[in-house]
Design a protein around this nucleic acid. Sequence first.
DNA 1: TGACCATGTAGAG
DNA 2: TCTACCTGGTCAA
Length: 329
Amino acid sequence: MPEGHTVHRLARTLETLFAGRPLAVTSPQGRFAHGAALLDGSVLVRAEAWGKQLFCGFASSGDDDVARWLRVHLGLYGAWTFAGTGDDVVHAIGAPRRRIGERDSVPAGVAADAPGAWEPPAPRGAVRVRLLADSAVADLTGPTACEVLTGAEKADVEARLGPDPIRPDGGRGDLAAARDAFVARVRRSRVTVGQQLMDQAVVAGVGNIYRAEALFRARLDPLRPGRDVPAAVLAAIWDDLVDLMRDGAATGRIVTTRPEDRGAGTGPAPGAGRRRTRQNTDDDTGAVPADEAFYVYHRDGLGCRVCGTPVAVADLAGRNLFWCPACQS
DNA sequence: TGACCATGTAGAG
DNA sequence: TCTACCTGGTCAA
């Protein structure tokens, strides 16, 4: 269940593991058999992300020009899991998944991932796509979208996306232009700013967590019409998203709370943990405990970390919206 | 065992 | 605004 930071991380991981060599591409589940056949044996040239869209560029063997793009959108449930030799291949990215081949118990005398004897583990679950190289394998399950595109078709997809705070140029040439585009787009409409932040044509890569947290950090009422939000407030939200989401892409975790707002007094109250946010964490660095990472997301009924008012939740366009009615009014 | 849930999107009406 | 769809983890019965 990824937001944009997860997809950027995925692109990096896929490049690290697979770029520059021919891959065996299969569809163990069968639902992507045709697309897999188109890509099988070609070379992954690069992988990139724009918002929540992942693009993997493939070239014919011995060629550097991308001939076909694999477009993947994980949706709510999609995930990649990885296995192989080497230090890079220890995690799953996306919805919570056990690693490929992970077992409840390892047979005695069998060393996991023993160098020199690596065999790809059997696909686990409904694997739409498997990418296999000499020493690494990646399995994709549950994507909302998985298709092979031409360069022109990829451009069409990108043309419908708003600026992406994680891309170095924001997807608009430079970050200042990207910020301007975001501000102008939000102020063009009377649709609530809470809804617009989830619109991938307004800003690409923001999901329910970054929406709730960015609005709280700006102390902005999610139900305020976009056209009524001052440009300076929107510009500050963009800048904040750049910081938060790039940090998320670097660490694999979303942490939005400032140190002074964590810990005793405002922290987990009754009911905390009844609904854990199953954030993908690679291997946890132990930096910020999961129940202190957010201001409002999944904290409905708990006291606001800043003012103590119970955090509210409501349905907005079919998604749960979390906010502090006192701080954000 | 089965209902419910989730960081999402697309298409119909 | 609604429904369908993709999957698997969690929890109640």
